[in-house]
């Protein structure tokens, strides 16, 4: 579905991505994890051409997103829904208007149709009563859920999540996790999640990729991931109190 071919990206003086190769299969939930500043978000941005690789190519299906322009790019982007780290809701619009924005801008639907659809999506993220509220009146978790509703309103094939649980309390984090999982099951979309929260990675991912120094050092299913012998992965797992012995869902040993 999405393929990275030797993608190199330099930001400042550092190679954030260094000949990165990666493939995401249709219908899976692909989790990219790793410590902060290791290029997780950068990878995600390459998929929708918010960043252009210095070298290499990024493919979405048959289309090369890293070289597309104009209408083609718009077409590729329309296959994506993106949930940004802070939600990225427009502050001067209400939650409902934010969710309705893509429809307002790109479809000829009537206001009534749009409102019905918006309410439906808000119901999906369990925030129907937030319709008339301003983003500034919502909590961080609620904002992310509204943003999620906006991401899915155009019924994209692929949803990208940038740190969906960062800055949220564990309970809300799990709610978001559940939501992501539900969406995948209900809508059958391909999901790419960027996170440093391994708990959530292990809970929702079909495959987990570990990014380190601009390269993918490990790609495996959650069960194998926690058993990995890779030093970087181990260090990352240990830091979050996840051991090889205990299953991640059990009480972590302190």
């Amino acid at each position: 579905m999405i393929r990275f071919e030797k993608v190199t990206k330099r930001l400042g003086r550092r190679n954030v991505l260094d000949e990165l190769d990666m493939e995401i299969r249709p219908g899976e939930t692909f989790v990219i994890c790793g410590p902060s500043g290791m290029g997780k978000s950068v990878t995600l941005k390459h998929m929708v051409r918010l960043l252009t690789p210095d070298k290499g190519r990024v493919w979405v299906g048959d289309a090369c997103v890293s070289e597309a322009r104009g209408r083609d790019l718009e077409k590729i982007r329309s296959r994506f829904g993106v949930l940004f780290q802070g939600g990225a809701l427009l502050q001067w619009l209400t939650a409902g208007e934010n969710v309705a924005l893509p429809l307002r801008e790109h479809t000829q639907m009537s206001d009534e149709e749009i409102e019905a659809l918006v309410r439906e999506k808000l119901r999906l993220v369990e925030l129907e009563d937030a319709y008339d509220k301003a983003p500034s009146d919502l909590s961080g978790g609620m904002r992310k859920r509204v943003a999620l509703a906006r991401a899915i309103i155009t019924q994209p094939e692929i949803i990208l999540y940038d740190e969906p649980t960062s800055g949220l309390d564990p309970v809300t984090s799990r709610t978001i996790d559940t939501l992501i999982d539900n969406l995948r099951r209900q809508l059958g979309v391909t999901s790419v999640v960027v996170t440093h929260d391994l708990h959530s990675a292990l809970a929702i991912g079909s495959r987990i990729a570990m990014l380190h120094n601009g390269k993918v050092v490990e790609v495996s299913a959650p069960d194998e991931f926690i058993k990995s012998d890779n030093e970087v992965v181990r260090g990352f797992l240990d830091a979050q109190y996840i051991t090889r012995r205990g299953h991640w869902e059990e009480e972590p040993t302190k």
Binding site: L50, E74, V82, A88, T154
Partner: peptide, 8 residues
């Protein structure tokens, strides 16, 4: 960025 993704 969000606007760009939405092709706005």
């Amino acid at each position: 960025s969000a606007l760009e993704i939405m092709s706005i």
